[in-house]
Simulated scan of single mutants.
Amino acid sequence: MVSGAAGAVGSVVGQIARIHGCRVIGVAGGPEKCRTIVDEFGCDVAIDYKSENLRDALRKHAPDGVDVYFDNVGGKTLDSVLTRLARGARIVICGSMSQYNATERPPGPANYMALLAARASMTGMVVFDYEDRYPQASAELARWLKDGRLRSREHIVEGGVRAFPETLLKLFSGENTGKLILALGNG
């Protein structure tokens, strides 16, 4: 399972999981993004966090629980997934998009004791920790792109440096699908 499945990181994580034979449940916001993560990025199931109850959807789509959760958003999504863990589940914390603009300190996960009950683990992941494996990853990703197993989508905003503030805000409002890029050539 991957949250932020229509974003730059989540879309690639879901595709890599699928390439390795996993059944992938993606969480995204809105019907268009949910269609994209299934039709373009290959998720088996899309859950629209804006219109669906995540816990109910997980009961339906992961009746035996979630084995691996790649978390890009934190907050209520993480709390919901914690209630649906399979025994020995692993959670990878990569981001916390839901909390980046919080005006007050957000509470920690309310359902963290589910980690104990499921004998699960939760760990942080920062890409820089794997710098020694960049050449291997680059070669594998390039091969998957070339043979069509991996798709890349870019949301390019024109406008140069002057457009930076508005472009950055697109990340937090969920306006982009795929990698958000600011073109610097025009400004």
Rank of each mutant, 00 (worst) to 15 (best):
L145H: 12
D56N: 12
I156Q: 05
D67H: 15
K76R: 10
P106C: 01
A117D: 11
Q99L: 10
R162H: 10
D48W: 03
L171Y: 09
A183G: 09
V66L: 06
L150K: 02
E40R: 13
R55S: 13
A62R: 06
I156S: 04
R119S: 13
G21S: 08
H155C: 09
R23W: 03
R151K: 14
A17V: 07
N186D: 15
G65N: 05
I16V: 15
E131H: 11
G21Q: 10
N101P: 06
P165K: 05
L184I: 12
L145I: 10
L54C: 07
A62N: 04
A183K: 13
E40V: 13
R149G: 08
P107R: 13
L180E: 07
F172Q: 02
L115P: 00
E175D: 14
E154M: 09
T77K: 00
E131K: 14
V2C: 04
M97T: 15
Y134F: 15
A117H: 10
N53K: 11
A117R: 15
A120S: 13
T177K: 02
L184E: 06
G30E: 06
L115G: 02
G29C: 07
F41C: 04
L85D: 01
E104I: 08
S3V: 00
V161Q: 03
L85Q: 01
R119F: 09
E131W: 15
A142H: 12
F41E: 06
C34I: 01
I25L: 11
S3C: 12
A17Y: 11
G7F: 12
L180D: 06
Q99K: 04
V68Y: 14
N176R: 05
G160T: 12
K60N: 07
F70A: 13
G26S: 05
I156R: 11
L145V: 09
L182R: 12
Q15Y: 05
P135R: 11
Y134H: 08
V126Y: 03
G42C: 09
L116I: 13
I181W: 03
S51P: 07
E158F: 05
E140S: 07
R105L: 14
G178E: 04
P109N: 04
N111S: 05
S173R: 14
M125W: 14
T123E: 12
M97P: 01
V9C: 06
G124S: 03
S3K: 04
D67A: 09
A5Q: 08
V9S: 00
G30F: 05
Y134C: 04
G7Q: 11
L82K: 00
D44Q: 10
K76M: 04
P165W: 03
V81E: 01
A137W: 14
V127Q: 09
H155M: 07
T83M: 00
G185S: 14
I93S: 12
V45R: 08
I156F: 01
V9I: 15
V27F: 13
G95Y: 02
V92H: 02
N186V: 07
S152Q: 14
W144R: 01
V24M: 05
V9F: 05
V73M: 00
